[in-house]
């Protein structure tokens, strides 16, 4: 066996140890080199776009992405935020930011509330049709919105929910990811807690509010971050359901940026577009960086 081999060999000579140490060191250098390259690979496109967003449009039109920093930064970001554009002339970065926040928060809060209640019913109650409702809910994990996009659009339009926040948010909630997540968590909560609560005379409502919700705090926070980012980053559904420019989200606005790039009448507003791209990206990225541990926990523990 290898273990006995290691013990039976005589102590390594000094020459061997230095060689080994050298090899170890070289390995560490290689490891760091790979990680640095990886980090640069992730950063590179974003940093370049950020730098270019401080230039004027001509700079990009003439020579593409820029290495360096110019003096147009504030002006570009101000224009991206406050200058109105679009067909109606009513759309600016600020109104899109507002809609993005409504979508992000509305989706995350709605999803968490609805799925927590459903998971509570499934895990803690004995009732008829329990198995049936379980399957009704979990079948939704099978089909992402993208594959039933056209009929979903028609249903929502038919209900008169086009260009409303409800039409934007609620169909996105119609999937069981959150319910699945809370179900897994509730099942890991010790059963003794329910017993104890019942002995103390707590009913289902009291148990939920006083015991289960406080216990789930970290889980709620983790899921909130994931769902906020997911909602904020939605593209296809908002593209279809919001035709009124006052309802556009920032991510939806990306489509306008790219269309303005092809506008050949004058020099397209490249760098203002890049500025808006940066604004679109910043909130979810900051949230993921700052709440990293919660976010990673939520992601890996749910196995969504």
């Amino acid at each position: 066996m290898a273990v006995t081999d290691t013990f039976s060999t005589s102590p390594p000579s000094p020459a061997v140890t230095t060689k080994k140490r050298f090899r170890l060191k070289r390995e560490t250098v290689v490891d760091h080199a790979i990680l640095i390259l990886g980090a640069l690979f992730m950063l590179f496109p974003v940093v370049l776009t950020l730098m270019t967003s401080s230039y004027d449009n001509l700079a990009f039109a003439r020579s593409g992405l820029q290495f360096g920093w110019s003096d147009q930064f504030l002006e570009n970001y101000e224009r991206a935020m406050f200058e109105t554009s679009g067909f109606t002339g009513q759309i600016d970065g600020l109104s899109m930011l507002k809609n993005s926040l409504i979508l992000g928060f509305g989706f995350a809060i709605g999803k968490i509330a609805i799925s927590m209640l459903a998971a509570y019913a499934i895990v803690y109650f004995r009732f008829r049709f329990a198995t049936l409702s379980f399957w009704i809910i979990f079948t939704t994990l099978l089909l992402p919105l993208e594959v039933r996009i056209l009929p979903s659009y028609e249903v929502v339009q038919g209900l008169g929910m086009g260009n409303t926040y409800g039409g934007l948010i609620i169909p996105l909630i119609a999937s069981a990811t959150g319910t699945f997540f809370f179900r897994q968590f509730f099942r890991s909560v010790p059963e003794e807690l329910v017993e104890a609560a019942r002995i103390d005379g707590a009913g289902p409502v009291k148990f939920f509010i006083d015991i289960l919700v406080p216990l789930s705090k970290t889980m709620i926070a983790a899921l909130f971050i994931i769902m906020f980012v997911y909602g904020w980053n939605q593209y296809l559904w908002p593209t279809l359901i919001t035709t009124d420019e006052g309802m556009f989200t920032l991510v939806r606005g990306i489509k306008n940026i790219i269309q303005s790039f092809t506008d050949s009448s004058s020099v397209p507003e490249f760098t203002v577009g890049f500025a808006l791209t940066m604004i679109t990206m910043l909130p979810p990225v900051l949230i993921v960086i700052f709440f990293q541990s919660w976010f990673v926990k939520g992601l890996t523990e749910s196995d969504k």
Partner: peptide
């Protein structure tokens, strides 16, 4: 390294697309 390698998770696919267009 962990932070630097994972933050792109939060970038929306169309935003990634626009970065791609510029590259």
């Amino acid at each position: 390294y962990k932070t630097l390698l994972m933050w792109v998770y939060a970038v929306a696919p169309p935003v990634a697309g626009i970065l791609g267009v510029s590259l």
